[in-house]
Design a protein around this nucleic acid. Sequence first.
DNA 1: AACCCCGGACCTGTATACAGCCTACGTCCA
DNA 2: TGGACGTAGGCTGTATACAGGTCCGGGGTT
Lengths: 248, 248
Amino acid sequence: MDPSSSQTVRALLKLRELILSGELKPGERVSELPLVDRLGVSRTPLRAALVRLEEEGLLDAILTGGFAVRGFDERELYAAIEVRGTLEGLAARFAAERGLVAQDLVALKECVAELDALLGRSAITTKNFSDYVKLNERFHSLVIDLADSQVLARQIERAVSLPFASASAFVMVQAALPEAQTMFTIAQDQHRCILQALEAREGSRAEALMREHARLARRNLELALRNQRTRLLVPGSGLIRFRTTAAA
Amino acid sequence: MDPSSSQTVRALLKLRELILSGELKPGERVSELPLVDRLGVSRTPLRAALVRLEEEGLLDAILTGGFAVRGFDERELYAAIEVRGTLEGLAARFAAERGLVAQDLVALKECVAELDALLGRSAITTKNFSDYVKLNERFHSLVIDLADSQVLARQIERAVSLPFASASAFVMVQAALPEAQTMFTIAQDQHRCILQALEAREGSRAEALMREHARLARRNLELALRNQRTRLLVPGSGLIRFRTTAAA
DNA sequence: AACCCCGGACCTGTATACAGCCTACGTCCA
DNA sequence: TGGACGTAGGCTGTATACAGGTCCGGGGTT
């Protein structure tokens, strides 16, 4: 009965992978029976996974029943990032206003120091970017933990469940584009400033910084979409619907 | 196949009612078989409803399997309201920055005018408060619509699925407490100012106003909890765990 | 008297059968 | 040739049977 090895979880993971990889295209109906063969699970856990993915925002319920893969246009990508930044900003403010104890500060400072060390050692490349991703995610989850609100944490969890909204969604792009290398420096300075604001209990500043920090993701996304080469590095790129008509 | 009359929806509604009414207490395990008799649906739609309620935040998954009713302490109530206000604030900013067309403005102004008329006619009491609730919710959903982002709209939908977080959660309390009557006037002035900010494309102001607007809910909640008489008027009051030990 | 072990009831996860609905294709008629 | 109707296939919603795990209580032992 280990939940991590349950059929439901297996179905959820495989199905999410199928959607993100683009094997199921936006708008396409996701029928259950073909997936039963494809995923090797029966309909019951499969349906549970479908319901979860709908709540997650990757699927849309069809009026007549069943689900379809959801598509996202460029505006929705930016909105998703802004939502994430806004919620993380709120978390930063909560954390700052509560005040941090020494132990919390140590953990944060350690994280920032490790990032410093990593960035000072060598450039982030497509080969070693996963170390950066780990540290970056640690920083973000530390801040969320410090906000100490399950309601907020769950809401953020849901926001980043859209693959292109997460804090580390575009690290791969950054690593691949030389013109994006400076973003690492900027991001790390923001980390440092956020830490400082948290320490000084400057809630408003912490919030604003965290929001702006998320907007780096937006800039990376814009860069990524402009280059044919990096476009496919965007997580969940298969879900993106590019406008065929001229944008207003 | 009408989804509104499906067993799943029926189970979802009845189960939510059972939780909010306090018949199922926080921490209590929600076993499926007893509910099959109680709700008159089989386990399959019941389980679907359980999964949805977990995503909604009313249930917690138990490690060994199954679900338990989630409890909320006072801090979480405030956090939920703040999250809602923050997201609605973002919606207001999006709407303002996009710019409204004449038709949008008409709809908003009509809504505000109707609220003016209602408030001018007579005091809001526990008997006629539902008219106010309808108009208030219309104002809020208009703003959300104008933000024109499904990602954001879904996130807000989820935020207000916690019963005490919704924009109209405390109207009943307001109506019952004489000292809260001025809140109607204040709220309506905020509506007016938000409309003005949207019209002038003042995104930042619209956002700040919407946030502050949500904080009225917080003030109402504080009032409600202080009065033994109104405490039970708080939606989902059965889910609230009051601290027994002294708060840090 | 306290602790440990064993047994049974209960509960969830999973698979599958069945019924009703929607859809799409083919055919027939105007 | 185009449109409308009927039928067949497939799909989802629902119910239920079965297997494995969990938890609680009682009895025995130290």
